[in-house]
Design a protein around this nucleic acid. Structure first.
Length: 799
RNA sequence: GGGCGGGUGGCGAAAUUGGUAGACGCACUAGGCUUAGGACCUAGCGCCGCGAGGUGUGCGGGUUCGAGUCCCGCCCCGCCCACCA
């Protein structure tokens, strides 16, 4: 075998490492290009074939951009805090830190064997105290600005992981990691006020070159709706009790149809009225029942809605002062709006179902539906609504609020689905939250010069399950002095969630060893924003929203100069196991790159990773597929033996290929770029190749298959790395065809193709075409009604 | 239920503005080379048909000289969200 990939891979990987060709020159005056991968969580399983799909893409772009004269920043690091490492360590009785380091070392080796052009001098890990020092620093700034606060909250609690979870980590009522049913638990939590940034997070999406799908997911997650708050008075029969509650609605126009009020079981008013309600026991029973339900059960749409009426009390509908009943039902969420709704069964499907079940009145106030069958949620003309009757529902939406606003009973309001970010975890393996609880001073942040607050060594990472982190058991760490008054005080024992470190790592890559600051503003200005960010779509509302939030905060405190961190985002599609299943450790169908790289070489592997299908589509891994890209590389390798000494003039296909490959790289269409390189190589194999063409071919190949390209580049006598070459330019006139194939159709059906000089006129083409047997025998002496002619493409005789 | 994708050979897939459907690759078939081949070379490879030819991009209709591509109606699959008032 001439093409000894093992030797070649090693030779060039060593060369690149020593040459420093991948390191970014911060002082360069070239235009910068910041090309970033979502850094991996270094799991114990190691790399699987899904990771390198994105890494290969960014590597192609990075190498391509360097050849186009850019100073490229292309770093790699490790998102290494988090539950899996901790769980693994508990299970296998090993040291988390050591286990994590081992995983990192393994990942790094695996990645290096792929010949990816990372600037390894910038490598970082979120678990390094020199790194998390600044994560903690950011937390302190958030705290100082009032954006980090404590709250006793019924939080999502995973009884298996024994920790609180963010809303985003709860999937269908189950823990994202271990699929245990999530429970509600009230504990003290640190919360970040991401809701303060809701509007900016929403509005600035417009400016981003991101997949529309991801932007839409973020919009939905933020879930802004414009509507109104309407005030309902709550009274008892004797009218000795008089309170007011607010409800949020997007359909103020249907107010005359509000026939009852529904409170969520957690609503504050319930405590005040249940004692006096004549069916107190019934209410208590219902509250208990819904409290014991998990989120999963409460939101199960297939189940009938349940609720209980509050007897002895009623609400006043401010539209017509009618008395309407009050109900408690857990289909109303405490966490949205004001935790209470005005129920308009005629025009809301949920209220409709509820009213049907409990025989509550259904009053139609918007025309256009068939209320006997289902709720009508569309627009129409108002009915039965006093002065508003006859008005269009759209118009009434605003008018109704204006009208009530004069009496202080309503106002325009905006509601969001986005909740504040529950930021503390009752676990060990995360960044310690750098605050101290002092009896005199309250919560006091650490002095910045005392950062990093290092994680103490422990023997036991078992979560306590009491809502306290394992750190709470380390007395000598917990007991400390207040930075303000020097009295005895206790450290916060909660840690930050996994997402913390990934919220700002892209900044640290720009200035990774800065001891004084998180990032020098000079360097930040030079390299931000990230020009291209590539990773999986599964981070659409987690990492990508959190990072944008932190970035905007850092912008507000003057640390960064751009409003958004990631200018352009692309998602790689999943690589599925054979059979279309997701690859996972538990299914045992994870394909590792190691053996493939060993058997076929890094370049064949890289090529197959992106030749397999469109970059953003999910594809099934076909273990045979790599054979094709391997054969292609062997063909290229053998071409070197037949390179002709003399240059044989114009090479049209070469220039067409340069054009095609260049455009395809820019458009992320790597699969078709490779296919056109294959066509070119097949052509040369038959026709022979000149030295100039071979050099151009190698340059084009070098971002995709860098080891092979370097080796052949050297073999034909070049001294310097091919990386230092300019990207080949195509000659426009050469890239155009001077002979074209023209389709000849009769009545729209293909009858002949003719090859003629380009740019012939209709008349010339017509005459040539009509001489062809397949054409004239069909045309015969029939009348040609019309000729459709498209230059260089087609002529169609319509009879 | 809502949002976003998608449906093209045995398989992964190509196909700027409507203009040769199936490029490129895998698998397969035949022949060659060979002590041997899971290597290589040559040819073939949507379906029906010996052939001319017909037919063909989820299904049904439409626009057009011409539709994978545009319009109307339906079916199916994937992902994400989901009692958000």
């Amino acid at each position: 075998m001439r093409y000894d990939h093992q030797k070649i891979d090693k030779k060039w990987q060593d060369f690149w490492q020593e040459s420093g060709l991948f390191s970014t020159d911060e002082k360069s005056d070239k235009a910068k290009f910041y090309c970033l991968d979502m850094f991996p969580y270094p799991s114990g399983v190691g790399l699987h074939v899904g990771h390198p799909r994105g890494y290969t893409a960014t590597d192609i772009i990075s190498r391509y951009k360097r050849m186009n004269g850019y100073e490229v920043l292309h770093p790699m690091g490790w998102d290494a805090f988090g539950l899996p490492a901790e769980n693994y360590a508990i299970k296998n009785q090993v040291d988390v830190k050591k286990a994590t380091q081992k995983n990192i070392d393994n990942f790094r080796e695996q990645i290096k064997r792929l010949g990816l052009s990372y600037d390894w001098s910038r490598e970082l890990s979120t678990t390094d105290p020199e790194y998390y020092k600044w994560t903690q620093w950011i937390f302190i700034q958030l705290f100082k600005k009032g954006l980090a606060y404590q709250s006793m909250l019924p939080i999502n609690w995973c009884p298996s992981c024994k920790t609180g979870l963010a809303n985003e980590e709860v999937i269908n009522g189950e823990c994202e990691r271990c699929s245990t049913k999530v429970e509600k638990k009230k504990i003290r939590q640190w919360v970040l006020k991401i809701t303060k940034y809701a509007d900016r997070l929403l509005d600035d999406l417009e400016s981003l070159d991101w997949p529309e799908k991801i932007k839409e997911m973020q919009r939905n997650w933020i879930g802004k709706s414009q509507g109104a708050e309407i005030v309902f008075s709550i009274k008892n029969e004797k009218e000795s009790f008089n309170e007011k509650i607010k409800v949020f609605t997007t359909r103020a126009d249907t107010l005359f149809g509000a026939t009852f009020i529904v409170l969520s079981p957690e609503h504050k008013l319930i405590d005040k009225i249940k004692e006096e309600a004549s069916n107190r026991d019934e209410i208590e029973r219902y509250l208990k029942e819904s409290q014991s339900k998990s989120d999963l059960e409460r939101t199960d749409l297939t189940k009938e809605k349940s609720g209980v009426g509050v007897k002895g009390f009623f609400a006043i509908n401010p539209a017509d002062n009618s008395k309407i009943p009050i109900w408690v039902a857990d289909y109303v969420l405490a966490s949205y709006g004001h935790g209470a709704v005005m129920s308009v069964p005629a025009h809301d499907q949920r209220d409709y179902e509820f009213a049907k079940r409990y025989n509550l009145p259904i009053k139609e106030v918007v025309s256009g539906g068939e209320i006997s069958k289902e709720a009508y949620i569309g627009e129409g003309e108002l009915l039965d609504s006093n002065d508003f009757s006859g008005m269009s529902s759209q118009e009434a939406r605003g008018e109704m609020v204006d009208h009530l606003e004069k009496r202080g009973l309503a106002q325009k309001a905006t509601s969001y689905k986005l909740r504040d970010w529950i930021f503390s975890r009752q676990r060990y393996w995360g960044e310690p939250i750098p605050v101290i609880h002092c009896d005199n001073c309250g919560v006091v942040p650490l002095n910045e010069e005392d950062l990093p607050l290092k994680l103490p060594e422990v023997d036991n990472y078992q979560p306590t399950g009491t809502g306290e982190s394992p750190l709470a058991a380390i007395e000598e760490w917990v007991e400390t002095k207040c930075p303000k008054c020097n009295a005895k005080a206790k450290r916060e024992t909660n840690t930050m969630p996994q997402w913390a470190g990934s919220c700002w790592y892209y900044l640290r890559f720009i200035d990774p060893r800065n001891q004084e600051k998180l990032i020098s503003s000079e360097k930040e200005k030079k390299f931000m924003p990230v020009d291209l960010y590539v990773g999986g779509a599964e981070h659409a509302v987690l990492h990508l929203l959190y990072a944008r939030f932190w970035h905007k905060f850092l912008y507000d405190i003057g640390l960064v100069s751009t409003k958004e961190p990631f200018a352009k985002l692309r998602n790689q599609g999943l690589i599925l196991a054979q059979g279309g299943q997701k690859m996972s450790k538990s299914k045992g169908n994870v394909v590792s790159p190691d053996e493939l790289v060993k058997e076929y070489g890094a370049d064949a592997f890289r090529l197959y990773e992106i030749f397999i299908g469109p970059f953003e589509d999910a594809v099934e891994w076909n273990p045979r597929g790599i054979v094709g890209t391997r054969r292609f590389l062997e063909k290229v390798y053998d071409l070197e033996l037949s390179v002709k000494k003399d240059d044989s003039g114009e090479d049209k296909l070469l220039h067409q290929t340069i054009k095609k490959v260049t455009e395809d790289i820019e458009r992320f269409k790597f699969n078709t770029a490779i296919s056109s390189l294959m066509i070119l190589v097949n052509h040369y194999k038959k026709e022979g190749i000149s030295r100039d063409s071979f050099e151009a071919l190698l340059k084009m190949l070098s971002p995709f298959a860098p080891h092979t390209a370097e080796e052949l580049w050297q073999k034909i006598g070049n001294k310097e790395s091919i990386m230092l070459c300019d990207w080949p330019k195509f000659n426009k006139s050469l890239a155009e065809e001077d002979q074209v194939k023209i389709i000849v159709q009769v009545d729209g059906r293909l009858r002949e193709t003719i090859e003629v000089a380009s740019d012939l006129s209709q008349e010339e083409v017509k005459n040539i075409a009509l001489e062809k047997e397949n054409v004239f025998k069909r045309v015969g002496d029939k009348e040609i009604k019309k000729i459709v002619f498209i230059k260089n493409k087609l002529i169609n005789f319509v009879l």
